[in-house]
């Protein structure tokens, strides 16, 4: 029943030449995105999640960047597209919202005018027609007094309203794909809940396909369909939302799940934490790069396992860890309250 992928990323590799050597920020990531689907890419700072998103719309093109693999939007290769072709696609077919709504608008122009300009770069419309469209969009994303607010400057908007304006701009040309890079990280929880609700509604009503980039699995649980967990440029685990939360296979995923504070559970004496910090991409350890931080390291870890399906019952769930599924089940229970409630219906789905 699954429709053909809208966006197909295969074996994407992005390296940046620096004075100290080549930083392989993204090291062979593949995934498909279907209409109406939300794929979440999760990881810490430096895992390569944002570079992946930016490369898809050609924002990492630079003299020192080496980009390999392919990114196809309904068959059209974006990596080899010319700059002018990309300009046509950006905004029109792929919209993007960034983390920081404070710096994403030009402070000296009115917000409405900036969005009208973006519309007019792609469509032949008059300014007044464009402005009418912006008012409509503002109303759609829940900005009150839209008629008046289009003439405001960015500083007159609160953080949450600015993020809504960003979403309005990203949706102005009705793209099929939306890339949301940490869209709620800078916001209060109540505003975050509203923005996530809005994104979900857009997915449902407009069949918008979304790539959600975040470090917070709490946000992922609210909106995603599929999850990719990235570490040091590689995907270390991928699966459906329920698989990642109820049957996670990689110790790094356990760490991410464990370190969340949860108001729905009694508070633990100590928060389970991932020791240390992400490795430098210039100086990766041999084998599994998570090895130095992993409490379950053993003799096979100096060899890096491939991203493979290791669960007999879930062919689309892949991970990079040598432990057997039984060992994983036992160890993650010891590590924290992770994957505690494997609901019977998940496996049958």
């Amino acid at each position: 029943m699954s429709p053909a992928p809208l966006l197909s990323v295969s074996d994407l590799r992005v390296g940046f030449a620096t004075e100290e050597g080549v930083v392989q920020a993204v090291d062979g990531i593949s995934f498909d995105l279907r209409p109406g689907e939300v794929v979440a890419i999760v990881g810490e700072s430096g895992s390569g999640k944002s570079v992946t998103a930016q490369t898809i719309i050609g924002l990492t093109r630079a003299n020192n960047a080496r980009i390999e693999g392919s990114v196809k939007l309904e068959g059209e290769d974006l990596l080899s597209a010319s700059d002018s072709d990309l300009r046509r696609l950006r905004g029109d077919r792929i919209g993007m919202i960034f983390q920081d709504p404070m710096t994403s608008f030009n402070p000296v122009y009115r917000i409405g005018d900036q969005i009208v300009e973006a519309i007019r770069a792609h469509r032949e419309t008059s300014k007044s027609e464009g402005k009418r469209r912006v008012v409509e969009l503002f109303e759609a994303v829940g900005i009150p007094n839209a008629e008046r607010r289009v003439d405001d400057y960015p500083h007159e908007f609160s953080g949450g309203m600015r993020q809504r304006a960003m979403i309005a701009m990203a949706l102005a040309l009705e793209p099929e794909v939306l890339i949301a890079d940490e869209p709620t990280t800078a916001l209060d929880v109540t505003i975050q809940a509203q923005i996530l609700g809005l994104l979900e509604q857009l997915n449902r009503e407009r069949n918008l396909a979304t790539i959600l980039i975040t470090h917070d699995l709490g946000v992922v649980a609210e909106v995603a369909d599929r999850v990719l967990v990235m570490y040091a440029g590689k995907v270390v685990e991928e699966g459906t939302l329920d698989e990642i939360f109820y049957d996670p296979q990689h110790p790094y995923t356990w760490g991410l799940l464990g370190s969340l504070t949860r108001i729905d559970r009694p508070r633990p004496h100590r928060l389970p934490q991932i020791a240390g910090s992400p490795p430098s991409l210039l100086d990766l350890p041999d084998g599994c790069p998570f090895r130095p931080r992993c409490p379950h390291e053993f003799s096979k870890c100096p060899q890096y396992p491939g991203l493979e399906a290791r669960l007999p019952e879930a062919a689309d769930h892949r991970d990079r860890c040598w432990l057997t599924p039984e060992e994983k089940k036992a160890k993650r229970l010891v590590e924290g309250q992770i994957g505690l409630e494997p609901p019977p219906e998940v496996r049958q789905a």
């Binding site: 809940a193 917070d216 949860r262 108001i263 729905d264």
Partner: peptide
């Protein structure tokens, strides 16, 4: 209201 807005990292509960 504040408590209700906190994301719960449990897809089923959410």
């Amino acid at each position: 209201k504040l408590l209700a807005a906190v994301p719960i990292p449990d897809p089923r509960e959410s």
